[in-house]
């Protein structure tokens, strides 16, 4: 699944570590999400959407 996490994180000026802290996951998880090697669970997708103030479908696309 493709996603816009890296771009959105850049817009916010957050590091991977900062996003990981806010989403309560490891930085390795953020790295795996951004590189498209891991698709998040629905709860994590909602958490990320809330953090960026977007809808899930604005961040992730099949």
């Amino acid at each position: 699944m493709k996603n816009r996490l890296r771009d959105l994180r850049g817009e916010k000026g957050w590091s991977q570590a900062r996003l990981a802290e806010l989403a309560r996951v490891s930085r390795q998880t953020i790295q795996a999400l951004e590189s498209g090697r891991y698709d998040p669970s629905l709860p994590l997708a909602f958490t990320l959407a809330k953090l960026f103030g977007r809808r899930i479908e604005d961040i992730f696309e099949p």
Binding site: R24, V25, S26, Q28, T29, A32, L33, Y38, P40, S41, L44
Partner: peptide
């Protein structure tokens, strides 16, 4: 102690 990705 793991998050969902690490647990996987």
């Amino acid at each position: 102690s793991f998050d969902e990705f690490e647990r996987g």
